[in-house]
Amino acid sequence: MSVLEPVRPRHDGRSRPHAALGVGLASALLLALLLPTGRIESGPVLCPFRLMTGLPCPACGLTRAWVYTAHGDVGSAFTAHPVGPLVLALAVLTFGWLVATKMRGAYPTWLRRLSLMTALLTLGVGLVRLAVLL
């Protein structure tokens, strides 16, 4: 091997899922900042569950909650989805971790547990909302 030959980093495959997650989170966060709050209430219904049943799924309202939170309207965010601001905070925390580790580090146990608790809380709130409607 020559001194001038570039050293190619070995990839163990871990960075690809992290990179995909990072791009997805960055896109969602940017979208929440760019969407005007006045247009999110009058847009089309995109949720497949709601389109088929007419009932909200456990995640219905999260997009609106993210947009409201990103624009500083936390009261409307909690009205759109009670867990929305928490999910957004978790997304920001996860994105920050991905950037800090350059998308190569192992997903820490505390962040994995926090993500699981947030997902279960979102599901629980969604099921309570659904039960109230039925």
Rank of each mutant, 00 (worst) to 15 (best):
Leu30His: 14
Pro108Leu: 02
Ala89Arg: 13
Arg14Phe: 00
Pro17Ile: 01
Arg50Cys: 08
Leu33Lys: 13
Met117Gln: 12
Ala119Trp: 04
Leu114Cys: 11
Ala100Thr: 05
Leu55Val: 00
Pro36Val: 03
Thr118His: 04
Cys47Ala: 11
Leu93Gln: 09
Val87His: 02
Leu123Trp: 09
Ala65Lys: 02
Cys60Arg: 08
Val99Met: 14
Gly105Val: 00
Thr118Ile: 08
Gly96Trp: 03
Gly84His: 04
Arg16His: 06
Arg10Asp: 10
Ala70Tyr: 00
Thr118Phe: 03
Ser115Phe: 02
Gly61Met: 04
Ala100Pro: 01
Leu62Ser: 02
Cys60Asp: 13
Pro48Leu: 06
Gly75Asp: 12
Leu55Glu: 13
Val128Thr: 13
Leu21Ile: 06
Leu30Ala: 15
Leu93Gly: 03
Leu114Thr: 05
Thr69Met: 02
Leu33Arg: 15
Gly126Ala: 10
Tyr107Lys: 01
Ala19Arg: 14
Val87Ser: 05
Leu90Ala: 11
Ala70Phe: 02
Leu34Ile: 06
Leu55Asn: 08
Val7Met: 15
Thr53Arg: 13
Gly84Phe: 01
Leu4Gly: 14
Trp66Lys: 00
Gly126Thr: 07
Met117Arg: 11
Val74Gln: 12
Leu4Glu: 15
Gly13Asn: 03
Leu35Cys: 11
Ala65Ser: 15
Met52Thr: 11
Thr79Asn: 05
Val132Cys: 07
Ala19His: 14
Ala26Asp: 12
Thr79Ser: 09
Val7Arg: 15
Met103Leu: 14
Ala19Pro: 01
Thr109Ile: 07
Arg16Lys: 10
Ala89Pro: 00
Ala26Arg: 15
Pro108Cys: 06
His81Glu: 03
Pro17Thr: 05
Thr94Leu: 13
Val83Gln: 08
Thr122Val: 07
Gly43Glu: 14
Cys57Arg: 03
Leu62Ile: 13
Thr63Pro: 01
Leu90Asp: 10
Met103Gln: 13
Ala32Lys: 00
Ala119Ser: 15
Glu5Tyr: 11
Ser115Gly: 15
Arg50Tyr: 08
Leu88Ile: 02
Gly13Lys: 10
Tyr107Glu: 07
Val128Ser: 09
Pro58Phe: 01
Leu133Lys: 12
Gly54Leu: 04
Leu33Thr: 05
His11Ser: 15
Gly124Val: 01
Gly124Asp: 11
Thr118Asn: 08
Ser76Val: 00
Cys57Tyr: 03
Gly72His: 07
Leu30Asp: 15
Leu29Arg: 14
Leu4Phe: 11
Ser27Phe: 08
